[in-house]
Structures are given as C-alpha cells and as structure tokens.
Computed example of a mutant assay.
Amino acid sequence: MFRIPSRFLWFSLPGRSIEVAQPDVATVKEVGPAFRPALTDADTTASDQGGGTTDRRQFHALAALAGIAASGSLDLLAAPTDAPRSIGTEQVSYAGSLVDKFRRADAAVGANQLCDIAIRVHAQLSMWAAKATHSRDVGEALQATLADLAIETAWLTIDANRRVEARAYLNEAITRARFIDDPQMEVRAFAHLALLTCQDRPGESRHSAEAALRSSAGWGTPRLATLLHLRIARTYATLNDMSGFNRAMSRAQREFERGANEDDMPFLHFVTAQEIKGIEGLSYLALDRPERAADAFRTITENPSPALRRNRIYYSVQLADAACRQGNLDEAAHTAMNLLPEIDQVSSGRVSRLFAQVRSSLGRPQRSTAASREFVEAYDQAVKG
C-alpha cells in the first residue's frame, strides 16, 4: 500500500494510515447513507474541475475505501501544486493503477464520493501532462492513462447522478485514444457514451454502440459484443421498437453464451447473466411492460452477484419500481422495506434518486396499503436520522 506523506495533504491524518483491502460496511457508513442529503458545512472543498464537494473529515476514509494512497514521488491526491518538471514510467504506472482501484470500490459501494476523488486525480494528472516534460514512450502511456481515467471518471459521474459532467470526459477519452491510435480505449469510450445517452438521445446511443461494434470488428471479444448489443437493445426499447429490441437482445445472448475470454478488457467484469436480465428489465420498463420487467429483476434478486453489491441493490430498487407500476403495491413495499437496511451501504446517486421515486409512488394516497404506509414511515424516519 502506497502512502501520502502528511506534509502533502490538505486534510489532517489520524494517528496512523488506514489500510483497506476492500470496502467494508463500517467504512461505508462513515461516508453516510446514500439517500441522505449531501453534507454542507464550512469544512468542505470543491473539486478543482467540475461540481461537487468532498468533506475534509471524510476524505481519508473515502480514499482508504477506494484503496487509494500515493507514494512521496506521486502527489496526485494532494492540494494542486505546480507540475513537476518531468515525469517517468513509475508515476504513469501508479496513476494507471488508480483506475482499477476506483472500479473495484465503485462496484461495491457506488460512486458519490469516489467521483470527487477521481475528478481531482484527473485534473492533477492533466496538468502534469500539459506542463511536465517526458519521453515519447512516457507521453503515449500518459495519454492512454488519461483516457482510461477520463472514462472511469465519466462512469462515476453517471452513477453519482451527475450525468451532465460525463460527456466532456468521454469526448476527451475519444480524442486521446485517437492521438495514440488506441482502438480499445476508443471503443470503451463509445460504449460509455451509449450508456450516457440511451434515455434522452437513443438515436445517438445506438450510433455510439454501433460505432464501437465496427471499430472492434476483428479483435473484440464475445463479452464486449454482448455489452454493445445490450446497449443497442435498450435504445430500441426507448424508441418503443419491440422487434429491434428482440433482435438486439438475441444477439447479446448468443455472444454471451460464447463465454469469457482471456482478452476481455477489465471493465467488462460486470457483464454477467444478471446484467443481461437487468438490461432486459430496464428495457421492458421503457416498453411499458412492467410485469415482464419485474420478472427479469426478480431473477437478479434470486441469483445475486456478491461482487457487484451496488448493481444488485440498484436492480432490487428497480424491482420495487416495476412492481409498483404493475399495481402490485404490497410486493413493491416489501421489496423496498427489505432494502432499507442495505441502502446506506452504497453511495450512488442513481440508486438514491430511484429509491426516492419509489417512496414517492408508494406514498400517494390512492396507493395506500398497510405495507406501503409502513415502508413510507420507515423511509422517512431513515432520511431524518
């Protein structure tokens, strides 16, 4: 575990460094429940690029949660300073390793506070790339690292429900990937752009996924093709095109059945049978088929993926929403009630927003049942607490 010398930090360290092999519930609870309002007191710092604040008293716990610290030679988490005169492979390699740390922490607990850390690291590394000297090889590696970090930062802003910030990072990633002729990085960026735009710009989303399919022809793995066909399927659903949705889902399923590959890119770890069911459920909601959506989401809750806790909770909330739309108010209320003990274990703006919508739906007078009233009361009490 790397460590940040205390003289470089803009927050106070406790008596000793915290080493965290993986996120745990106790650390997450220190960050705070996902559906509570963000902290707003005088002891916050705005991120250097973009919105959001990070409470200084929480930052050390958050960095440990992500498994992030730094060596004395790589001050990516310290307060902004002048760029070093030169950087080498050691610094670039460490910066690159942060992406995997962000990815693993995000899968477990969500993106809300991790997002600000990623934005800060990206801003610092971008400044170094613009001002520091380096060899040609280091320069290419730095461009790749910045593209990788920009894509991960974009995803974190999406999960933190700060979607408006994501596009700039994805556009940057595409540009940097082209600088160094890296088709894999460009395909990743287009896959995330398809996700970002699937609801409000489904046409652009489909074009982005199809561009990624064309670019990956000849080297793409079945898991990558699965993801891209899932992205396309969801855009057809948003456009209320059932036949297009069915075709794309069938292609995704066929690719998935070809199995994993040693050449799969690390970010594809979430492309599982559960994810296929999740996209199927989201698509059926878009097609106004809540009963089919609920069936898909139940499959996930009955066969959860332990490594993807945030995704499991997200799709469980989607089950409550689908059941509510279906008119099965007691199932919706019971599902939501069972999630209350877990919801503060993730810090995801997407999950928070959807959970609040479920509470709002179940709180309508015309939908009042004993179960819905019990959930609404418990939810409101948890928010106040």
Results as ranks from 00 to 15, higher is better:
Y284M: 03
M1R: 07
G67S: 04
E140F: 09
Q253N: 12
E331T: 13
R56Q: 11
E30Y: 12
L224I: 03
T175C: 04
L282C: 08
F270A: 05
S316K: 14
V31K: 00
A70L: 03
E374C: 10
H60I: 05
Q318G: 01
Q22E: 12
G363S: 14
L114R: 05
I313W: 15
T369H: 12
K131L: 11
A78V: 00
D264Q: 06
P183K: 03
A42P: 00
L213W: 04
E172R: 15
G110A: 09
R373G: 07
A26W: 09
A66I: 00
P14H: 11
T235N: 12
M185V: 07
Y236Q: 11
T369P: 12
K101C: 05
A273N: 11
T40C: 12
Q124C: 03
D159A: 04
E90N: 11
S352Q: 08
P84E: 02
V351P: 01
H192W: 15
D82H: 10
E377A: 15
G52I: 05
Q357W: 00
A294C: 08
R201C: 07
A191K: 04
T301R: 13
A323I: 00
R359C: 09
A194F: 08
K101R: 14
Q318D: 10
P37N: 07
D295S: 11
Q366W: 11
S126H: 06
Q22D: 09
I87P: 07
H122R: 13
Q91K: 10
L340Q: 00
F102G: 01
H269E: 06
T89I: 14
A132C: 03
L227P: 03
L224H: 07
R36H: 10
F270H: 12
R136A: 07
K384H: 14
K384I: 10
S12L: 08
R310M: 14
I119C: 11
A70K: 00
E302R: 15
V358F: 04
A189Y: 05
L98Q: 00
A336E: 10
S216I: 09
Q274D: 07
T133C: 04
I117K: 01
F11L: 02
A108V: 04
T40S: 15
E275C: 02
T44F: 06
L239F: 00
Y236E: 10
A307G: 05
A63F: 02
Q113F: 05
L170Q: 05
D100I: 03
K101D: 07
F11V: 08
A294Y: 02
E257M: 12
S305N: 15
L230I: 08
T133M: 08
L156C: 09
T40E: 15
I18M: 03
Q326V: 01
R136H: 11
F355E: 09
R16K: 09
R359Y: 06
A323V: 05
A320S: 13
A233T: 08
S97I: 02
E377Y: 13
A177W: 01
D137S: 12
A273I: 02
I68Q: 00
R206N: 07
E342Q: 15
